[in-house]
């Protein structure tokens, strides 16, 4: 898989922190987002024109998605979900640039799922108080306790495995396709690999654009639903 070695190591207060490829890819994505956002939100006007229309449509869509799925009282979550949507979308579509998407690294997917897990639990505690939260584990009957604990712990595992598995499958499929096309042009004694120029385009549309967007959507939707159902336990 090629991305398991540390590229360089940062020494900080005697602790060495290895920096892997996926971390650097995420830095690049963060830099791209940080460049795009000020450009898009520079001198906003009351009557939107040009790029402001796009920005307002995106913000409006995210707001209505959060309100529609979680209800009016959860609209404070809209900025978090907006960030998650943009960040995940950039990470999943990073494969289109020819590099490996960072979400094909299980650590990245697990990190995102742990963020979701912490938010789900903290929101449940804030919503129903610490006693109500603990009581929530013994509902509807006390002997459901182990089942409820497993149910909550399985959430980050299934969220991260779904994201990681789908993106990794897409990466492997594209690698196999490129290898196969290269082999085909090698067998036919073609100097230039013509097949690799046009045939992968529909596969990229399916595996990178479609699958990446759907996985982003599913991750966000499931986080929303789990936040809502866990707090109303």
């Amino acid at each position: 898989m090629g991305s398991s070695e540390a590229i360089f190591t940062i020494r900080f207060l005697g602790i060495s922190i290895p920096i892997y490829y996926s971390v650097i890819a995420q830095w690049v994505i963060m830099a791209i987002i940080m460049i795009i956002v000020p450009v898009l939100t520079k001198n906003l006007k009351l009557v939107p024109t040009g790029r402001q229309v796009i920005v307002e449509t995106v913000v409006d869509k995210i707001n209505s998605l959060v309100k529609g799925n979680m209800g009016e009282e959860y609209k404070g979550f809209a900025p978090f979900f907006g960030t998650l949507i943009i960040y995940l979308l950039f990470m999943n579509l990073f494969g289109l640039t020819g590099f490996r998407p960072p979400t094909a690294d299980y650590s990245v997917a697990l990190g995102l799922a742990i963020i979701s897990f912490v938010i789900i639990q903290v929101n449940a505690i804030v919503h129903s108080g610490i006693l109500g939260y603990i009581k929530g584990y013994a509902k509807p009957f006390w002997f459901m306790l182990p089942l409820n604990i497993i149910e909550r712990l399985v959430v980050p595992v299934s969220l991260s495995l779904r994201l990681f598995g789908n993106i990794t499958a897409a990466v492997i499929m594209m690698e196999l396709l490129y290898e196969g096309l290269e082999f085909l042009s090698h067998v036919l004694h073609l100097k230039i690999p013509v097949f690799a120029a046009f045939i992968p385009i529909p596969f990229h549309i399916y595996f990178d654009l479609f699958d990446g967007t759907i996985q982003m959507f599913i991750f966000v939707m499931l986080t929303m639903i789990f936040i809502k159902t866990t707090s109303e336990h």
Binding site: N69, R162, I218, M221
Partner: peptide, 27 residues
């Protein structure tokens, strides 16, 4: 339609998870 589509996507994600576990074992 909108409600149905979002429910469908969530349901598909759950049923697809089993396939992903199988794929993970294969990988």
């Amino acid at each position: 339609k909108n409600d149905i589509v979002s429910t469908l996507i969530i349901g598909s994600a759950f049923s697809e998870a089993t396939a992903i576990y199988g794929l993970l074992v294969a990988i």
